[in-house]
Each structure stands twice: as structure tokens, then as C-alpha cells.
Design a protein around this nucleic acid. Structure first.
Lengths: 226, 226
DNA sequence: CTAATATTCAAGAGAATAGTGGAATATCAA
DNA sequence: TTGATATTCCACTATTCTCTTGAATATTAG
């Protein structure tokens, strides 16, 4: 009925291995690092300064993530560049985030407290955005830094980094709605963009998802990003 | 540009909260408990004996899972019944499992080592099963204990608990293929069923997914959800 | 070669976690 | 009430994790 290994032993090994992956998700700093490398690959000191921690500590956490298979590293010269390891890793991270937003009311409270007036900048959901994009009823702008756009973006979007928004603002259409997106829910770039655009008389809304969410949603229909 | 809370503070809080959920996934026993309550709700001592650990320890781990929002508890008389907490929790757990199977070669090795001759009992994938079920080309049997079937099963499946297989075997059709499924990849009920059925001259195969995978995978393709 | 930069490694203090055994609590039955 | 059962709480030890500091390694520039 059963193989050469005792059932209990087998289960302990199998679940223990999965738990090693779980343990990698058990630290806030590591989750922040995951979020940062989800957008584009980054060097250790870049990540360290973005996450506000020491380089040594950052390196250690990155290696925990690497051993767990969640990120991969590439060396180039004196730099080591880390990025998300695989589609499965991206999916797992999105799953954890989705779980938090669905099941942890405290998280919602913290986000709302931080983004005080976000509710005014009403968001467009993925489905509506998709259908209106297809009919060219909206302009979608990606307000993240240029490098992140180049590492992957929502098809049909145009790169307008938040810092350069003023340079581009005259070229935007006043007649149709402008949708801004950035790194996701915890990122405020698109909030700032919408606020600025509205001050200049544009009709603007946010899309709360990011590239990964968009692809994950589109994957079930068999289409992929360019 | 930013609310009343400092960005770093906000991020530490938000990621820290998510990490609390991650920490709940950082222990093999807890993952095994998650797997057990995924099928149907169970009492503490049931879970303790199934997972081979003390009642006190089981209770403690269950409470970690409960505080993390991954399981919910219901009290009835002297018993406390635990089950998976929400669709988001189920999705997260499936995501972790999928990640492990995709990215941890060691896990694959352990599973293969345990289930020595599983490869002979070639599995049917979800897509094929779905289409052949629609055309009534197969009979799908659920070989888990009856209570788990009653708590939820794949539509169109018939409950034949592995222990009662011999009583039912004469009533099964010899002309079309029989597909057996159970709790998922780590469960051997369906292996045993297929082996027994083949010994009796039936054409039989396993389906490696479980109810949750099936429900989550509706509309998508492949073995597991994405 | 040496100097400078980027990253990793190693060791140690302090905090958190896991598991055990026993006590405490709650419900039910007699 | 008393006793039986199921679960949770508590205290304790062993283990693991986190973060800091400082040294070690590797690559590039001069």
C-alpha cells in the first residue's frame, strides 16, 4: 500500500519543505523586498536604501528569499541584481497580498489611514479598464520610473514618470479620461498623478492593480504581455 | 503628497501585518493542519491524532492559524471544529503548494520516493477529465471518507470510500474508464483504488487534483490553478 | 600592483518560537 | 454535585531568528 518510506516521515519532510518557503514570507522586510523586486531587478544597495535597512541585513534577507526560490540573483561586475524568481513565486506573493487585503481588516485600516483621501480618487476596476481600453475610451499612463516601465508594463500604456508629469501634461488629451497606474495598492505615485491631473482640469482616475496583477488576470484568457 | 503617517512607518506596519500571515505558514505542522481542514471541518483531537502530535500542541498551532485568519473555529458542546477560513485562505494555501511543486525540486524528489510506482498509475489532467466527463466517457469516483465527500466534492463524482471499495466494485462499469481522486497529490487513497481496480480488470486512472483545485481551476487549464 | 566599491560571510547579543507537561476552564451526563 | 471529556492556558527549556559590527571576498579603475 505504501512505499519504502514511513508515512509520517514522508509528511514531515514534505510539509517541512513547504514550510521553508513559508518561513521566507514570515518577515516584513522580506515582503517589502519582494514587492520592490517585483517591478524590476535591483541591486542590493538600491534595495537597502529603498527599504531603509543596512546593506548587510538586506543581503542576508535576500539570500533567505533566494534559498527559498522566491528571487533569483544575477551578478554583473561588482553588482548583484535580484528579481522575482518565477511565475509561481509572483503568484504566491500576489496570493499573500490578496489574502491580507481580503482577511485582515487591520491592514485595510492602516492603508486607509495612510492614504487619507484615496477614496475621492475613485479607482477603476480591471474589467472596466480592459473593456474601455479596447474601445479606446481611455488613455492609460504608467507613472512609475522609466526603468520599471521598460521592465514590463500593461499593454497599451504610455510611460509618464510621475516626476516628469508636468513636461507631458500639455500633450495629454482633454477629451477622454486618463487612467494612471503604478506599483499597486501601497504605492502613491498614481494618487499624486490623478491629483495633479485633476488640478489641471483633466478627468482622471486610478487603476489600483499593477503589471503583475494585470498579467495574472489576463493569463487565464491566454494572452500575454509584449 | 503623503498622509499624516510617515511612509516608513506605514510600510513597516503594512508589511509587518502581512508577515504575520506569512509566519503562520512557516511551520510544517501548521501546513499539515491546513491540508487536513481543507477537506472538511475537524475537531482538535481528530486533527491531533491525524497529524501525530499532542492535543495541546495541536491546539496551539490551530490558534496561530486562527489568529492569522487562515482557519475558523466553531464550538459545539465540548468540541471545537476547525476548518479553512475563507476562499482567500484556500487560494493562499494552494498557491504555496503550487509554488513548492513548481520551484522545489527536492519536494518532487521526496514525493516520488514515497510514491514509488505512482508513475505507472498515469494520471489524467484536469482538462482531459473535464472534457471526458462532459461527454460521459469516464466515471469519476471520490475515494475519500464519506464525510469529506459530503462536505464538498467534484460535481458528477460518486462517493466510494476506499475502505468500501470492495462492496461497490461489482456495480462499476467494465466498459468505460474509471477515474479516482482523493485529497490531492500527497494522498494515497486514489493510488490504492486504482491499483485495486486494475487488479479486478478495470481500466482506471488517478486524478491528482482535489475539490479545491477543481473549483479554483474552473475556466483555466492545466493541473493546478495559477 | 593598490585603492575603492559592492557584496557576502561570521560571530554574538537579544528576541521570538516550538514543544512538553500539567493546571485551568467549559460542557455534558449521571 | 461529582466525574468524564475536550480544549485551552501557562510556565519552562531548547532552538531558531534578527540585526549589528567588522572582517573577508570579488570586481573594477588607475
Amino acid at each position: 500500500m505504501i512505499g519504502p518510506v514511513k508515512p509520517r516521515e514522508f509528511k514531515d519532510q514534505a510539509y517541512g519543505l513547504l514550510a521553508r518557503a513559508g518561513r521566507a514570507l514570515a518577515n516584513g522586510h522580506r515582503l517589502e523586498l519582494l514587492d520592490l523586486v517585483e517591478q524590476t531587478e535591483r541591486s542590493v544597495d538600491e534595495l537597502a536604501s529603498m527599504a531603509g535597512m543596512s546593506v548587510a541585513n538586506t543581503s542576508q534577507h535576500l539570500q533567505v528569499l533566494r534559498r527559498a526560490g522566491l528571487v533569483t540573483a544575477r551578478r554583473s561586475g561588482t553588482h548583484a541584481y535580484y528579481r522575482l524568481g518565477s511565475p509561481a513565486a509572483a503568484s504566491l506573493w500576489r496570493g499573500l497580498r490578496a489574502f491580507g487585503e481580503a482577511e485582515l481588516p487591520e491592514l485595510e485600516r492602516i492603508i486607509d489611514q495612510y492614504l487619507t483621501d484615496r477614496s475621492q480618487l475613485d479607482a477603476i476596476d480591471a474589467r472596466e479598464l480592459r473593456s474601455r481600453l479596447e474601445r479606446d475610451e481611455v488613455v492609460l499612463i504608467d507613472v512609475r520610473p522609466r526603468v520599471e516601465y521598460e521592465a514590463g508594463h500593461i499593454p497599451g500604456s504610455r510611460s509618464i514618470p510621475i516626476d516628469d508629469l508636468h513636461d507631458y501634461i500639455d500633450g495629454l488629451p482633454a477629451s477622454i479620461e486618463i487612467i494612471a497606474y503604478c506599483r499597486g495598492r501601497y504605492c502613491v505615485y498614481s494618487d499624486d498623478a490623478v491629483r495633479t491631473l485633476r488640478e489641471h482640469g483633466f478627468a482622471a482616475r486610478r487603476f489600483e492593480g499593477n503589471v503583475g496583477d494585470w498579467n495574472a488576470g489576463i493569463g487565464t484568457e491566454g494572452r500575454w504581455i509584449d
